[in-house]
Measured scan of single mutants.
Amino acid sequence: VTTYKLVINGKTLKGETTTKAVDAETAEKAFKQYANDNGVDGVWTYDDATKTFTVTE
């Protein structure tokens, strides 16, 4: 299990959150659900070296 980070650069929501997941794909699903629940819809990137997803509106 690895800790992944999400950086949110939204129009109305900015911040960070983390999740523990077995792989990046599982973390991405959780983060996309989180973003959707919070009304954030943007461009996604992922940096494997830092295990960090970024979504920018």
Score class of each variant (00 low, 15 high):
Gly42Thr: 01
Val40Tyr: 04
Thr45Ala: 11
Glu16Leu: 03
Ala27Ser: 02
Thr19Trp: 06
Val40Arg: 02
Val7His: 06
Glu57Tyr: 06
Gly10Tyr: 14
Asn38Pro: 01
Lys51Gln: 12
Leu13Thr: 07
Ala49Gln: 11
Thr2Trp: 11
Lys20Asn: 14
Lys11Met: 14
Thr17Lys: 15
Val40Met: 08
Gly10Met: 15
Lys11Pro: 14
Asn9Arg: 09
Thr50Gly: 06
Gln33Met: 09
Thr17Val: 14
Gly10Val: 15
Lys32Arg: 12
Leu6Phe: 06
Ala24Met: 05
Gly10Pro: 03
Asp47Val: 11
Gly42Trp: 04
Thr19Ser: 06
Asp23Ser: 15
Val55Phe: 04
Glu25Gly: 11
Ala30Asp: 05
Leu13Cys: 08
Asn36Arg: 12
Lys32Met: 13
Ala35Cys: 05
Val40Asn: 03
Gly42Tyr: 02
Thr50Cys: 04
Ala35Ile: 05
Phe53Trp: 10
Tyr34Trp: 07
Asp37Asn: 12
Thr19Met: 14
Thr17Gln: 14
Lys11Cys: 06
Gly15Phe: 13
Glu25Leu: 13
Thr12Glu: 15
Val7Ser: 04
Tyr4Val: 01
Thr2Val: 10
Thr19Glu: 08
Asp47Ala: 05
Thr12Asp: 08
Lys51Asn: 11
Ala24Trp: 11
Asp48Cys: 04
Asn9Lys: 13
Ala21Thr: 05
Ala24Cys: 05
Asn36Gly: 14
Val7Ile: 09
Val22Leu: 09
Ala21Arg: 03
Glu57Arg: 03
Thr26Asn: 05
Tyr4His: 02
Tyr46Met: 02
Val43Glu: 13
Leu6Ala: 03
Gln33Ile: 10
Tyr46Ile: 02
Lys51Phe: 09
Glu16Cys: 04
Val7Tyr: 15
Thr54Glu: 06
Thr2Met: 10
Thr50Asp: 07
Thr56Phe: 07
Tyr46Asn: 01
Ala49Asp: 10
Ala27Asp: 01
Phe31Cys: 02
Gly42His: 02
Tyr34Gln: 04
Asp41Phe: 10
Asp48Glu: 14
Leu6Tyr: 01
Asp48Ile: 11
Glu16Gln: 06
Thr26Ile: 08
Thr45Gln: 09
Lys20Thr: 10
Asp48Met: 08
Thr56Ile: 06
Thr45Leu: 14
Lys14Gln: 15
Ala35Phe: 03
Thr56Gln: 13
Asn38Glu: 14
Asp41Trp: 07
Asp41Tyr: 09
Val40Glu: 02
Thr3Phe: 10
Ile8Ser: 03
Val55Ile: 12
Tyr4Met: 01
Val22Trp: 08
Lys5Gln: 04
Thr17Trp: 15
Glu57Pro: 04
Asn36Met: 13
Ala21Pro: 02
Ala49His: 15
Ala35His: 01
Trp44Gln: 01
Glu28Gln: 14
Thr3Gln: 11
Lys32Tyr: 06
Phe53Ala: 01
Lys29Asp: 11
Trp44Ile: 03
Val43Trp: 12
Glu16Asn: 03
Gln33Asp: 10
Gly39Thr: 05
Gln33Lys: 10
Thr56Trp: 09
Thr17Tyr: 15
Asn38Ala: 14
Thr52Met: 05
Ile8Tyr: 09
Thr54Leu: 06
Lys11Asp: 13
Val7Leu: 09
Gln33His: 13
Thr19Pro: 01
Thr54Met: 10
Thr18Asp: 09
Lys29Val: 12
Val1Ile: 13
Gly10Arg: 04
Lys20Arg: 13
Val1Tyr: 12
Val1Phe: 14
Ala24Asp: 09
Lys32Pro: 00
Trp44Met: 04
Lys32Ala: 06
Phe31Met: 03
Thr56Asn: 09
Phe31Gly: 01
Ala35Tyr: 03
Thr56Glu: 12
Gly39Pro: 02
Tyr46Ser: 01
Asn9His: 08
Glu57Ile: 05
Asn38Thr: 06
Thr17Met: 15
Ile8Asn: 02
Asp23Asn: 10
Thr19Gly: 05
Thr52Asn: 02
Lys5Thr: 11
Glu16Lys: 04
Glu25Trp: 08
Tyr46Arg: 02
Lys51Asp: 03
Asp41His: 09
Glu57Ala: 06
Ala49Met: 13
Thr26Asp: 14
Ala21Val: 07
Asp41Ile: 09
Asp41Met: 10
Asp47Arg: 03
Thr17Cys: 07
Lys5Ile: 09
Val7Phe: 08
Gly39Cys: 06
Asp48Phe: 05
Gln33Thr: 10
Ala30Gln: 13
Asp23Phe: 06
Thr45Cys: 05
Thr3Val: 08
Ala30His: 15
Asn38Met: 09
Thr2Tyr: 12
Ala27Cys: 02
Thr54Trp: 08
Thr50Glu: 14
Thr26Glu: 12
Thr12Gln: 13
Thr52Lys: 04
Asp41Val: 07
Lys11Gly: 13
Asp37Ser: 07
Tyr46Leu: 02
Glu16Arg: 04
Gln33Asn: 14
Thr19Asp: 03
Val7Asn: 05
Thr3Ala: 07
Ala49Leu: 11
Asp41Pro: 05
Thr50Phe: 12
Val55Asn: 01
Ile8His: 03
Glu16Met: 04
Thr45Gly: 11
Gly15Ile: 15
Lys32Glu: 04
Thr3Tyr: 06
Gly15Glu: 15
Tyr4Ser: 00
Trp44Cys: 02
Gln33Gly: 11
Val43Cys: 05
Phe53Ser: 00
Val22Phe: 09
Gly39Arg: 10
Ala35Arg: 01
Lys32Ser: 05
Leu13Lys: 04
Thr3Glu: 12
Val43His: 10
Asp47Leu: 04
Ala30Gly: 05
Thr19Asn: 05
Thr50Arg: 07
Thr54Ala: 05
Glu28Thr: 04
Asn36Thr: 13
Asp23Ala: 05
Trp44Gly: 00
Thr2Gln: 09
Ala35Lys: 01
Val43Tyr: 09
Lys5Pro: 00
Asn9Val: 12
Lys5Gly: 03
Ala35Glu: 01
Gly15Met: 13
Val55Arg: 01
Asp41Asn: 13
Ala27Thr: 01
Phe53Cys: 00
Lys20Val: 13
Asp47Trp: 04
Lys32Gln: 09
Lys32Val: 13
Ala27Trp: 01
Lys32Leu: 14
Lys14Glu: 07
Thr3Arg: 05
Thr17Gly: 07
Tyr46Asp: 00
Ala24Ser: 10
Phe53Glu: 00
Gly42Gln: 02
Leu6Gln: 01
Ile8Phe: 14
Gly10Thr: 15
Thr50Pro: 02
Thr18Ile: 08
Lys29Trp: 13
Asn38Phe: 13
Thr50Ala: 09
Gly10Cys: 05
Asn9Ser: 10
Val40His: 06
Gln33Ser: 11
Ala30Thr: 06
Ile8Ala: 03
Thr3Asp: 11
Ala24Thr: 13
Phe31Ala: 02
Asp48His: 12
Thr50Gln: 06
Phe31Asn: 00
Asp48Trp: 08
Glu25Arg: 14
Thr26Gln: 07
Ala49Cys: 05
Glu16Ser: 06
Phe53Asp: 00
Phe53Arg: 00
Asp37Leu: 13
Gly15Ala: 14
Lys20Tyr: 13
Thr19Cys: 05
Thr26Val: 08
Ala24Gln: 12
Lys20His: 15
Tyr4Glu: 00
Thr56Gly: 03
Thr17Arg: 15
Ala49Gly: 07
Glu57Ser: 04
Asn36Ile: 14
Glu28Trp: 14
Gly15Leu: 12
Val43Ser: 15
Glu16Tyr: 05
Asn38Val: 07
Lys14Asn: 15
Gly10Lys: 07
Ala49Thr: 11
Leu6Cys: 04
Glu28Phe: 15
Glu25Thr: 13
Asn38His: 10
Ala21Trp: 03
Thr3Ser: 06
Gln33Cys: 04
Val7Ala: 05
Thr56Arg: 06
Leu6Ser: 01
Glu16Val: 05
Thr50Tyr: 08
Asn9Thr: 08
Trp44Asp: 00
Lys51Glu: 04
Lys14Met: 13
Thr17Leu: 12
Ala30Glu: 15
Thr18Tyr: 14
Thr18Lys: 10
Tyr34Asp: 02
Thr12Met: 11
Tyr34Ser: 03
Lys29His: 12
Val55Glu: 00
Thr54Tyr: 06
Asp23Val: 04
Asp47Thr: 05
Thr56Ala: 11
Leu6Asn: 01
Leu13Asp: 13
Thr2Lys: 07
Thr3Trp: 06
Asp41Lys: 09
Thr56Val: 09
Ala30Trp: 14
Thr18Pro: 02
Ala30Asn: 12
Tyr4Asp: 00
Thr45Lys: 09
Thr26Leu: 04
Asp48Ala: 08
Asn38Gly: 05
Ala27Val: 02
